[in-house]
Computed example of a mutant assay.
Amino acid sequence: MQHDELLGLVQARAALPDRGRAERAVRATLETVAERVPAGLAQHLAAQLPHEIAEPMLRVSEEHSPAEGRPSGGERFDLTIFAGRVAWRGGVSEEAALQEATAVFEVLDAALSPELMEKLSHSLPHDIRELLPLARAEEFT
């Protein structure tokens, strides 16, 4: 999936006013995901995304790498922290952040390989997993 197509889909699904808002939503969500999942998984996710979207995700993943003295399994946090971080990064309320993150996950489900989405599902706690498309979220309940 190309950069503009991905942003257009997120913009439509989240009913955002413009592409800039969609880009902030994508970036905020994926940077927060990169903090939460193992570094290797973040790199695999980034490899299947357009460069413009993957680069910030890789940067955050590298900041949380074991070389920095952090655990390689990703930082542990729940939906409340996830929503707060996405909201802070995106400059929106936590409610809007969750709506936008849900739209981002829906588009990722179409953009990434099914195997990679399954790995992402497995790496997220139940409460964050509920933001994934319904079929994925229920797959592991």
Rank of each mutant, 00 (worst) to 15 (best):
I128W: 03
V33Q: 01
D109P: 09
L6H: 09
A103F: 02
V92P: 08
S61Y: 11
H44A: 14
E95D: 13
E31P: 04
A97D: 08
P71Q: 02
S72Y: 07
S123T: 10
P56H: 00
L58A: 08
S65M: 03
L98K: 07
L98Y: 06
R85M: 07
G69I: 03
E100N: 11
P133C: 05
P17C: 03
P125F: 06
G8E: 06
R13Q: 07
E62Q: 12
A39Q: 14
L6F: 12
S65I: 00
E94Q: 11
A97C: 06
T29E: 00
T29D: 01
D18F: 06
A137H: 03
R76P: 11
L41N: 01
L7Y: 05
E35N: 11
H51C: 15
R19L: 15
F105T: 04
S65Q: 01
A22T: 06
A103I: 04
H126F: 15
D78K: 11
D78P: 09
V86Q: 04
R70Q: 06
Q99Y: 15
L132Q: 05
G74L: 00
A54D: 01
E139Q: 14
S65C: 05
E52K: 11
L120P: 01
Q48L: 07
A135E: 14
F82G: 04
L131M: 03
F105G: 01
Q11M: 09
A42E: 01
P114A: 12
S93A: 07
G74F: 00
R27M: 10
S65K: 00
G69V: 03
L45I: 08
G90D: 11
L112S: 04
